[in-house]
Design a protein around this nucleic acid. Sequence first.
DNA 1: CGGGTAATTGACCCGGGTCAACAGCAGTGG
DNA 2: CCACTGCTGTTGACCCGGGTCAATTACCCG
Lengths: 240, 240
Amino acid sequence: MNSLRIRLEIFAKFSQDDRDLLQQLASRNIRDIRPRRDLVREGERPRFVYVMLDGWACRYKMLPDGRRQIVAFVMPGDLFDNHVFMLRELDHSIASITALRVAEIGREELEALVTDRPGVAQALWLNDLASLAVQREWTLNVGQRSAYERLAHLLCELFARLGSIGMTDGNACDFPLTQVDLADATGLTPVHVNRMLQELRGAGLIELQSRKLTVLDPAALQTAALFNDRYLHLNREPGI
Amino acid sequence: MNSLRIRLEIFAKFSQDDRDLLQQLASRNIRDIRPRRDLVREGERPRFVYVMLDGWACRYKMLPDGRRQIVAFVMPGDLFDNHVFMLRELDHSIASITALRVAEIGREELEALVTDRPGVAQALWLNDLASLAVQREWTLNVGQRSAYERLAHLLCELFARLGSIGMTDGNACDFPLTQVDLADATGLTPVHVNRMLQELRGAGLIELQSRKLTVLDPAALQTAALFNDRYLHLNREPGI
DNA sequence: CGGGTAATTGACCCGGGTCAACAGCAGTGG
DNA sequence: CCACTGCTGTTGACCCGGGTCAATTACCCG
């Protein structure tokens, strides 16, 4: 729940009250989800905003014939799916990758929060703007980068995000994604993801085995990926 | 300026006061832009929120080596780039396609608006959530659809958006995009865009010449594109 | 030990990219 | 009024990055 605080407080200044309230909301209505289950499904009426307390999930869209695109990964500390406010039906699904622990925040609670706490409301908004920036970069990634660059870029993004929430250990981290997941996120086939991973290994950039990623040469990996973490908005912006 | 009202009022209920205020903001500080100019450039500090009064623009990102991806199109009535609130630097640029007429809304004005007018604030937020939904669909589009489907999908989207703001005439509309623009938006090469357009013409789905698009068979085009307009949020959601 | 999922590898193929030439047309200046 | 320039669109020949298909090898867990 600390991580929730971290991931929203980047975006606005919170009072101790705001913090306590959020903390409280994120510790009621906890739900545990098994790995590889749909958490919410396309077409459903959205009911909750979720706070990821533990585990990895992905947001994905599917075409009628089964082609699947992962459009985002969700990590601990992320607050996600605040479509409670707008959509009749969700236009995408969310699935767990690992086992999850999530907090569900109901619509009324969220509405109260937004009405009574301008700081929190702003943080929620900026959180969405940050997601939008990330989604743009994904469009660029899939649209313009080569398979090799694309995969490198995804690894850079995931590692940077994990780092920002203290889930890296030096230049290593847990990495629960399968090659099929990586394929669905990059718009490649699993076979080709495998080949590109071999190349990344061969170039001495990464090690990846038994769900553990080590970035052997971060600078070189970022160069290969044409990666710049600006779009992730991991740090507080002095702006506002 | 009417169109502005339309495009934001989808998302929240406005009082007559809200409406007047917006109208006012969108009629001060009008700027005219020539075709094919950068309106705002990556790396700049964002200063204004813009309302597109007339013309087409695109949002794009570039890689250091010059590869370019258009990540969104902006049309009359769209309010865009409310990053005033968050970003130190923009992570993308915006360029005019046709000649533009835009209204610039300054940061203080916007902040006042958000503070004093909860309805407007919500509409702005939901506007961003809608953009996010569109951006996800673009990721899917570029990641999973074939060249043919992808182009058809883009045409469907543009035509649907134009229709929602009354800029279609039966099943025809003005269409200022070049094949290079279409290529940058779909992640294809201009040459291949040309070939796919020929196929769409050959299949009797569209006519496209001298900046005029006619959708000869809307249903068939949508089927070919695997298009469903739900993600565009063109209509008021009964939700909230 | 068995069964299922994930990773790996090789052989072959194809959608879309690349390169290049050319045509159409608008704008511009002499 | 015409020549020139530059952008946009079109077409053809060829090529290659990444997909497809299929078999095999790790794993993991009961």
